[in-house]
């Protein structure tokens, strides 16, 4: 077991624990903070995969912008710990069972997937995660979706203004 693997397991375990904490935290603020930690762990994974650009973008966009917005909204409307009405235990149980069965089902499917056997993910190698190749690809092959995503933003902007206006 080399260092990279140790890092992989550590990051994964950390991410999973944090994700579970997101779920079980009573206080929404704590949930947000745990989620930020999850994002950091995932960014760590990206770095491990040498996807530096995505790692940084993940932090900037998710941890830096999106989660700030979440935190912002939660603080703004001041959701208290106790104000969230809890679902019935039964419903919760069903939810957990559903999620768990989804997990087991998909994992068992993946286990059977023969073409994946023996395929590995090279860690800390490769240059495709760096900004140069990504930029090239983005503005050559993917320029159409890139432009089109601006439409998405326009509509989101119009919508946010529309909804936010008094």
């Amino acid at each position: 077991m080399n260092v990279l693997e140790i890092i992989f397991y550590a990051l994964s375990a950390f991410a999973l624990v944090c994700a579970i904490m997101v779920l079980i935290s009573k206080n929404p603020i704590h949930s947000v903070l745990w989620l930020i930690l999850v994002f950091f762990a995932i960014s760590g994974h990206y770095i491990l995969l040498n996807a530096q650009f995505l790692a940084i973008v993940n932090i900037i966009v998710y941890a830096g912008a999106i989660m700030v917005l979440f935190l912002f909204v939660i603080m703004l409307i001041n959701v208290k710990k106790d104000s969230e009405p809890q679902k019935q235990l039964f419903v919760k149980l069903i939810g957990v069972i559903a999620g768990g069965s989804f997990l087991t089902l998909s994992i068992s499917l993946v286990k059977q997937a023969m073409p994946l056997v023996g395929k590995t993910v090279p860690l800390k190698e490769g240059t495709i995660g760096l900004i140069h190749p990504l930029g090239k690809a983005l503005f050559n092959d993917y320029v159409v979706p890139f432009e089109i995503s601006s439409v998405l933003f326009l509509s989101a902007m119009v919508g946010a203004v529309l909804i936010g206006k008094k």
Binding site: L33, F53, I59, A63, G64, V68, L71
Partner: peptide
């Protein structure tokens, strides 16, 4: 010498606001 140093700065700066928000809250 990170080759995406400016993005790194952005990432860190965007983290900075958490300190204030968490403390304030």
């Amino acid at each position: 010498d990170v080759n995406i140093g400016i993005l790194y700065i952005f990432a860190v700066v965007s983290m900075g606001v958490y300190g204030i928000m968490i403390g304030g809250w």
